[in-house]
Computed example of a mutant assay.
Amino acid sequence: MAPTDRQARTLALAHALSAAERGLAVIPLSRTKLPALRSPHRDNPAGTPPCHGECGRFGHGVYDASTDPARIRALFAAAPRATGYGIACGLPPHHLVGIDLDTKTGTDSATALRELALRHLFTIPPTVVVLTPSGGRHLWLTGPPDIAVPNSASRLAPGIDIRGAGGYLVGPGSRTEHGEYTVAPGSAHLTPAPCPPSLLRLLLPPPREDHPPHRPAHPHGQGLVHFVLAAHEGQRNTRLFWAACRAYENGFGQALLAPLLDAALNTGLTEHEARATIASAARLTGHRP
């Protein structure tokens, strides 16, 4: 017998609190898999600056996510129709990255991921796997703390969606319109494994070609320096990391170190932040920082 909404909410709260004990920030979800609390700003006029919870009220989606039991209980108390919970991606300490292998489109996303792994020489390590009611799977991985993996839908391959910074995964134990999310047999005792470096590089955004040169650059990797210079706030670390990875992979990372550092400083990063990001790229590509 399917549980009532009240029973489903009680179970979802229990699962959410358990996830929070493991350092996973959570929010209540409805049976549609959407945040269960409506935005307090839904009637605001168009053009109003977005609020990510600064107002102190609930209803900001993933920005409400918390590991604090008291706050989680308050969120669920404000969402009586919640039957599940979402786990925010990209937040410390796990910096969760979700690989969503969908089956609803009729595509074989699992085969597509295996082909990507063969082509780019990576292996998905043993990690937490969550089974979805539609027959799909969510693979839980962890990313570097200084890199924001963006969300994407079918960019890697049809049926493969990525849940990164600003996104969330439906937590196991949640009930939706189509059924229950469950942990795959054999993975309940595991913790999220680090994302393989080759896969991580695929998850980061490619360089944009529509920005004109802003200034003279090193003869090697001129486009990479321009790519970093064109970064807006919120993109600076990610663009710098991507460019540094490409430079080291192509054999001129050390030669491009100073121009990349200079470009990063021009975007507003501190020297400490920029050097740490470039060093992460060097380690990720197998080079000595």
Rank of each mutant, 00 (worst) to 15 (best):
L96A: 06
V129T: 12
H94P: 06
L116T: 09
I124F: 03
S109N: 03
R119G: 01
L116A: 04
T105E: 14
A110G: 10
V128I: 13
T103E: 09
V128T: 09
T127A: 05
T111I: 09
T103K: 14
G136I: 05
T111G: 11
H120G: 05
S109I: 03
I99K: 06
S134N: 15
T107G: 06
V128P: 02
V97A: 07
A112H: 15
D108H: 14
H94N: 09
T105R: 14
P126V: 09
T103S: 12
R114E: 15
L96I: 11
E115H: 13
H120N: 05
S134H: 13
I99E: 02
G106F: 10
L96G: 03
P133W: 00
L96Q: 02
G135A: 01
L131Q: 10
H94Y: 09
V128Y: 03
T127P: 01
R114I: 07
L121W: 11
A117N: 10
S134Q: 13
L121F: 12
G106H: 12
L121K: 15
P125Q: 07
V130W: 04
H94C: 05
L113N: 04
V128N: 07
V97L: 09
V128M: 01
R119A: 13
L96N: 05
A117G: 12
T107W: 12
D100H: 08
V128A: 00
V97I: 15
G98E: 14
R114M: 12
T107E: 13
G136D: 08
R114W: 10
H120C: 00
L131R: 12
T132P: 01
P133Q: 07
H120Y: 09
T132L: 05
P133E: 00
G106K: 11
L121Y: 12
P125E: 08
D100N: 11
D102H: 01
T111S: 15
L101S: 07
I99C: 03
S109H: 02
D108N: 15
P133T: 00
V129R: 11
G135S: 04
S109E: 06
I124E: 02
P126D: 10
A112Q: 12
V97C: 09
T111C: 11
L113Q: 09
L131Y: 01
T123I: 11
G98C: 10
P125A: 10
E115N: 14
L96V: 11
P125W: 05
A112S: 15
V97H: 06
S134K: 14
V130E: 02
L116R: 02
I124C: 08
V129H: 10
T132H: 00
